[in-house]
Design a protein around this nucleic acid. Sequence first.
DNA 1: CGTCGACTTGACTAAAATCAAACCCGGTGG
DNA 2: CCACCGGGTTTGATTTTAGTCAAGTCGACG
Lengths: 256, 256
Amino acid sequence: MNEPVSLSLARLRRSCAECSLQQLCLPTGMNGEDIGRLDLVARRRRPLAKGETLFRPGDPLRAVYVASEGSFKTIVVNATGDEHVLGFHLQGELFGLDAIGTGAHRCEAIALVDARVCELPFDNLATIAAKLPSLQQQLLRVIGQSANHDHDHVEVLARRQANERIAMFVHGLSERYRRIGRPANDFHLPMSRDEIARYLGLVLETVSRGFSRLHEDGIIEVHGRRICILDESALLAAANGGDGGETPEPRKRSNA
Amino acid sequence: MNEPVSLSLARLRRSCAECSLQQLCLPTGMNGEDIGRLDLVARRRRPLAKGETLFRPGDPLRAVYVASEGSFKTIVVNATGDEHVLGFHLQGELFGLDAIGTGAHRCEAIALVDARVCELPFDNLATIAAKLPSLQQQLLRVIGQSANHDHDHVEVLARRQANERIAMFVHGLSERYRRIGRPANDFHLPMSRDEIARYLGLVLETVSRGFSRLHEDGIIEVHGRRICILDESALLAAANGGDGGETPEPRKRSNA
DNA sequence: CGTCGACTTGACTAAAATCAAACCCGGTGG
DNA sequence: CCACCGGGTTTGATTTTAGTCAAGTCGACG
């Protein structure tokens, strides 16, 4: 608590670099004093085994999380026991914001592989954000970005064909791997076909056929969960309806 | 500026009551001083004609809005000119939060009928929220609720059959009308079949058939955009797959 | 080497989109 | 007053898409 700010700062920078949460931990224009205060946000790492649950619906909002190692899925299970995947969270990505509205989580977060999270206790975060405009700004930005993701997800589910959804999914993952400094054209999927299907609103057979189709078309190489992207622009084209058949006269804006 | 707090307070209470934004303007436990500060959030009303645009993609985040009269839709138009409806915003409901992530709006907001909005300039809001924990709390809560709506929307689009989506939509609207003190079992839809379809990820014919089906089953009365709910519990049942055919063995949770 | 789970592939079916035609209703103008 | 638009809506017939059911195949691991 009484350590000099410089020390905290150095420690924070190191651990945040590992943790990849540049968005929140190392906001631009944050000065030493501010970072010193950020130190008050207790941070500890917790390991989880593959399949282990980090939080479940109804759990009170204690913290938001960053996948510091490994990856996670967030799911909702409806009354009929049917599971839907809301999102996948790769290394360095923030999740757990869903509880902000009600104070309790609405979905369940599960480790896809052996993993590790960095916790940011939310009450500390909120308290400090109140004193620290730049952090408040960052917090709102991060929340907003997560909402943007949801909007994109909605748009995909509402309008895109199965093969487009799959191409978009692969392309999107590729971009995210690039962002965290991993090979963007050769990676391993941390999730099953079934989980991809439940994320894209399809069934697993359709996802499998989609991958096969992309393979046949020479766009990607598939060996189980190992994906190599051979033709990035063709992938992007496929994601926008550019497969085999010609664009079938898109539905125009309503004029109600 | 130098008016006694009590006056501001009275004025605010009156205008907020009209505006129905209880969530943000009249948060529980806000004292007189706090409300006095809230007064600094400039608020003015703006009328819009049916079909008029309030903000469009790329517009900088200036304010968040409450539909103080009439209703709105928010849409995104993709590269092919295809329109998707992200949400409908009835009287008293807050919208425009989509710009928080990037500082610029990503969607377009259009008045469905002649309408009026209450603007809450965002920088003021953020500044004051920083000084006023209870408002910060409310702001986060409202944002979170909007994210929750998106999650629900995603789940509907991913998993529900056309008829279920339509029943859920009608039921959801009914609840929202109840909340704002309007008849919940007899109301007028402010949007066209086409707009409903674009919200639910269907085509207008499918929506029309869905309404007809609910009518045939004696669950609702339909005359164009006028809807009467005859059997609320049957509507809820239809929204959960309880129509004609028996539940076809729901897809269980993945065990990957 | 055999087993199990994840994945792929094929044949068939159900659901919703598409195409196309009528219908209803409020508004306009003869 | 009534005929005639025209948009939004309903309804029908047909096609397309993805889901379902059912075998297989592949690969990891004991």
